[in-house]
Computed example of a mutant assay.
Amino acid sequence: MSGNDSFGRGGILVAVVPGQPVIVLEHGARLADDLDLPLICATVDPNRYLVSSYVDGTVVALPYDPDLPEAEEERFDPELEEHIRSALAGRGIPYTLKQLAGDPAWALSRLADELDVRYIVVGTREAGLRGSLREFFNGSVAVHLAHRQHRPVMVVPLAPVPGAQNLPWEDPPV
């Protein structure tokens, strides 16, 4: 039940992001509990690319921006780790934490292959202009995962739009 235990094959991979509503983690935990599988909580730094990774979850990554500092070991965000620890407290679900770097869909897919996970759980994009712009330029992580690897992807809606309202990418009515 610690943050960095090693597991065998076939867990549930859940993508976690600082500030993300806990519902994504809760759905991943519920699925892991239902299937009696460990939970792998992974976060991705999209501003760096992977140079190497270690068994304890530490990665060495370089920034895409040449003006940023050189290679550095990245450890899992302590605040995010505490958030996960509190959300999973008392559930009895074994979990591990993984820090990744690079394109989120590619990094999650690579980890899913490496660990031979059963399912990948992600949240929908964040609401607002910033989230819409990021998704427009980078594409949806869920869509990329659904089309570029063979595992089922569970997409947890973070801000469902009622039936009569326009979806975030639709033009407002004229």
Rank of each mutant, 00 (worst) to 15 (best):
L100G: 02
Y64G: 12
I93F: 04
G92Y: 00
P66R: 11
Y49H: 14
Y64W: 15
A107N: 01
P66Q: 09
P63T: 04
T58H: 01
L111H: 03
V51S: 07
T58D: 06
V59N: 01
D77A: 11
V60K: 06
I93Y: 03
L80C: 12
L68I: 01
Y95D: 03
Q99P: 02
Y54V: 11
D56M: 06
A105W: 00
E79D: 15
Y64F: 15
Y49W: 13
G102Q: 06
E70C: 07
A107G: 00
A71E: 15
P63S: 15
E114F: 04
D113G: 15
P63I: 04
D56H: 06
L111F: 05
A89P: 04
L80D: 07
D77P: 04
E81H: 09
S52A: 15
G57I: 09
G92R: 12
F76L: 13
A112Q: 04
A105F: 00
Y49L: 08
A107E: 01
A105H: 02
L80T: 12
Y54K: 14
E114A: 15
D67E: 13
R48D: 04
P104L: 09
A61D: 01
P69A: 11
S53E: 12
L108E: 01
Q99T: 11
L88T: 08
A61C: 09
G90C: 08
Q99G: 02
F76Y: 12
E79W: 02
S109T: 13
I84L: 08
A112S: 11
T96K: 03
L108D: 01
P66G: 05
V55S: 10
A105D: 02
A87G: 13
D67I: 04
S109K: 08
E114C: 08
G92T: 09
L100I: 11
L80Q: 11
K98P: 00
R91P: 03
G90S: 08
D56G: 07
P78V: 10
P94N: 12
P94A: 10
P69E: 11
R91I: 00
P69L: 08
V59Y: 00
S109V: 11
A71F: 00
E81W: 00
E72C: 12
I93E: 02
R110T: 14
D67M: 09
A71H: 08
R75S: 07
P69W: 02
G92E: 10
W106D: 13
S52H: 06
Y49Q: 10
G57K: 07
Y54T: 14
L100P: 01
P78C: 03
R75E: 13
L88F: 09
T96C: 05
E73M: 12
R48S: 07
L111P: 03
V51C: 07
D113Y: 00
V51E: 11
P78D: 09
I84K: 01
L88Y: 05
E79N: 14
L108S: 02
A87K: 06
D65N: 15
Q99R: 13
S53G: 10
D113A: 14
T96G: 07
Y95P: 03
F76R: 06
F76C: 11
A89R: 13
A105Q: 02
G90R: 10
A101I: 05
L88N: 06
E70W: 00
R85L: 12
I93C: 04
L97H: 03
E82Q: 13
E81S: 14
S86H: 13
E74K: 10
